[in-house]
Each structure stands twice: as C-alpha cells, then as structure tokens.
Amino acid sequence: MTVPLYVQIRREIEARIRAGDLPPGARLPTEKDLSAQHGVSRATAQRVLNDLAEAGLAIRRRRHGTFVADVTRQINLLNFVTPATAAKGVPGRHEVISARIVRAADAVLTLPGASADTAVVELIRRKLDVREEPQTLERHVVLFAAAPDLLDENLEELVTLPYLQRRGVALDTIRLYLDPVALGETEAALLNSRIGTPALMRRRELLAGEGKAVEVVTTLVRPGTAEFFLELPVPAG
C-alpha cells in the first residue's frame, strides 16, 4: 500500500522531533517552505502541519508560525470525538499487543447486540508517540462478518473506520462516549502508569441499520500526557 505523500512528510518531521533535532519550542517550516521543499501543494503542506497540531505535537499560532509542542499534548475535545479525526488517525505508531478471532462472549469488550457465540475480531494496540512513549491504549472488537480479512491488514497502520468503509460496510451512526476510569493492572503496565490512576477513555460504537453494532473501540489516554480543552467563539452580545 502506497503511503500518501503528506504522511511521508509528516513522518519526517516526527523523526526529527524524536531525534531531538526539533526540541519543544522549535519553529517548524511554514506551509510555503514545505511546499517548496517537497514540491507539494499549499493544501498538502497545511494538512501536514494541521495533523501535527491535532495530535498535540505542534502548536499553530496565527501570524507567528507553527512550533513543536511540549511533552504534554493539548487536545481539543471537539477534535478528540470528531469522526474525521478517527478516520485519518494521528501521528505516531501502533504497537500490536494482540490480534485474534474469538467468540463475542470472550472478547475484551462487549459488542452491543452480539450474541455470545458471534465471531468477532479482537485487536489490542498501544499507540506510541514520536518519542516512543505510550500515548494511548486501544481495544477494538469488530464483527467478523463485516471484517473477515481484518487480520490480513497492516495492523500497525490500520485505521478501522475507513477500512470498513472501503469494504462497503453500511454504517449508519457513530456513537461516542467519554468515560472517566481508574487504571487497572494491565492498563497501568502498558501505559507506564500507576494502578488506580484516574484516566479518560473514549468509547466509540459504529452502528449499522437498526442500531446493530459493527465495531466498538475504546481509547484510553495515558494520564498526565494530555490536557483536554474546549475552545468556542464568544457569542455576540
């Protein structure tokens, strides 16, 4: 599978951040500079910088430029729950913890509406940031009938929403929840955190017609690595 050019450029910048060549506070190339350096359109250059900013790796300041962010990511809750962000993924890499086909009753998450003997695909991954530090823990449970070849995909790169859309799965609704949780032993170990530490978990359900669930996925954010905020315009007086 060919990696899109904007992803290649983004990864080059991520590698420089990881190597320490671009420390926190360092100014990143402008859209004009990226366009000239890589021979891409201004829109492609803008997407690279916007993706880095949405992932919390960069801060974009109007009329001042784009800068490498501090270790603590700034996450806009509206971006955190929007389907568009889920569809394209964010910078960093996935480490596959486990991938298997199991009965719904034995899966790590409950797939709403699935009977105990329904076959599902279970995928557990850890997202690492460009510094190779744990960022999130993701658990997916997908209806096997909708994704029989999912385990043949590149699981380190896979983003499930566009994968299901490419397969022609008829998705009707995306339902999102934000749940405060306390880390259990397994979660704490994978996220390099302490057992019982409060954390924020996003739970997403992809629903087909009549509310039938095709996938449920949880994303558990490593405590202390992100600050969540909402930024809204001030209403006219």
Rank of each mutant, 00 (worst) to 15 (best):
L22D: 02
I59R: 13
P112R: 08
T110E: 15
A188D: 03
E138C: 03
L5I: 14
S193N: 07
G39V: 11
D106K: 04
P23G: 05
G196P: 00
R166S: 12
K127F: 04
T30M: 12
S193Y: 04
I97K: 05
V169K: 02
E133I: 15
I59K: 07
L183E: 02
D70W: 06
V221T: 12
A199G: 08
D33P: 00
Y6G: 02
A116C: 00
S41D: 07
I75S: 03
D33N: 09
Q46P: 00
D51H: 04
Y177S: 15
Q165Y: 06
R203H: 01
T2G: 08
L150W: 00
A119E: 14
D117M: 10
S41G: 15
V102M: 01
L28M: 07
T72I: 15
R10D: 00
D106R: 09
A236C: 03
H94D: 11
P29H: 08
A116K: 14
A116I: 12
V3L: 12
M1N: 08
G224E: 12
T72H: 05
L34C: 04
L151N: 03
V234F: 09
K127P: 00
T110S: 11
A208W: 08
A53E: 15
T82K: 09
L5W: 03
E12P: 02
G224M: 09
A36C: 03
A55I: 08
M1V: 08
G113T: 10
H38M: 11
R203Q: 12
D51F: 01
V48T: 04
E132N: 14
E54S: 12
D51V: 05
R60S: 10
G92C: 06
A208N: 07
T82P: 01
K32F: 11
E187Y: 04
H140W: 10
P23K: 01
L52R: 02
V96Y: 10
E205N: 08
R60M: 08
S115I: 10
D149R: 15
V234R: 12
R27W: 12
P29I: 02
L151Q: 03
P148F: 10
N76W: 03
R16W: 05
T118G: 03
L77R: 12
A86E: 11
G196R: 07
G211C: 02
R125Q: 06
T85S: 14
A36Y: 07
A19R: 15
E231D: 12
L178P: 00
V102K: 02
D106W: 05
V121Q: 01
E156Q: 15
A189E: 14
F228C: 04
D70Y: 02
P83M: 13
G113I: 06
L109D: 02
E31R: 15
R11F: 09
T197I: 07
V102S: 01
F80H: 15
V169E: 04
P24Q: 11
K32I: 13
I97S: 06
K127R: 15
A36N: 11
R131V: 08
R73P: 07
